[in-house]
Computed example of a mutant assay.
Amino acid sequence: MQIDDNAALIVIDVQKGFEDPGWGERDNPGAEANIGAILAEWTDADRPVVLVRHDSVAPDSPLDVGQPGNAFKPVVADARHDLLVTKQVNSAFYGDPDLHGWLGERDIHQIVIVGIQTNMCVETTARMGGNLGYDVIVPLDATHTFDLEGTDGARLTADELTRATAVNLHGGGFARVVATADLLEATGDPA
């Protein structure tokens, strides 16, 4: 795996509101540590970092702008970043300011996506990035999600949803799904 010198790290929705017990059971308790390790490598290498924050418009959401849960978790709260994108939908490409335009202005063709939730905002942003022609890399162990129930009562665990995301992204040709250790090794910083 080759990492471009100007590959952008896109850190999605690493917000305190996802600690709310109302989300249910989560997977990957090591996600934040892996996000922190990747973020430190990107900062040390002076590669571009984009923080994305979900500013929910849903009533009573822990991610609402007026709630403490809207704030970033400590692992990213004081991180050096080149751009802050706010959004109200799943894809960071539908946020403000325009992520695609910002990347294009800087001739960035490779993006690494980490954050919360694996099967929601991370997967949607990765799919759109792939559709827009970016070389998308998703270190899956630097993401996490929660159990989810469908309208028919079927329930998938967070682990099952993460596995489905890996298959969707890799099998669909949207992104390369990798491990944090492999990504860091490719940047010259073994985990």
Rank of each mutant, 00 (worst) to 15 (best):
I116C: 01
D13I: 00
R127H: 07
D96P: 01
G24F: 01
D182S: 12
L103N: 04
L99E: 05
P48I: 02
G22L: 10
N6M: 02
S61P: 13
D135M: 11
A7F: 06
V122E: 03
T157W: 06
P139V: 00
S91G: 04
K87Y: 04
L103C: 14
N34K: 05
D189G: 03
G69R: 04
F72K: 06
V75C: 07
G153L: 13
D96S: 14
P21L: 00
L51D: 06
R47S: 02
F174Y: 15
P74N: 07
L83Y: 03
D5P: 00
P139C: 02
D60F: 14
V49C: 06
E32K: 12
D147A: 12
T118A: 04
L84A: 08
S56R: 04
L169E: 09
E41Q: 07
M120Q: 12
R163M: 02
A92E: 01
A142R: 05
N34G: 04
H100K: 14
V167E: 13
L63C: 03
A181F: 05
R176C: 03
G69M: 05
P74W: 13
W23L: 07
N28A: 00
D147F: 04
N70A: 15
A37N: 07
N119Y: 12
Y94D: 07
D107G: 10
G150Q: 14
D20F: 00
V52K: 08
F174V: 06
D60L: 11
T187R: 09
P29D: 12
D13H: 01
W42R: 10
G171R: 15
V122P: 02
E105T: 09
T157F: 02
L140Y: 10
H170C: 10
T162P: 00
H170Y: 12
D135S: 13
V136S: 08
I116H: 03
P74H: 06
R163L: 03
R127P: 04
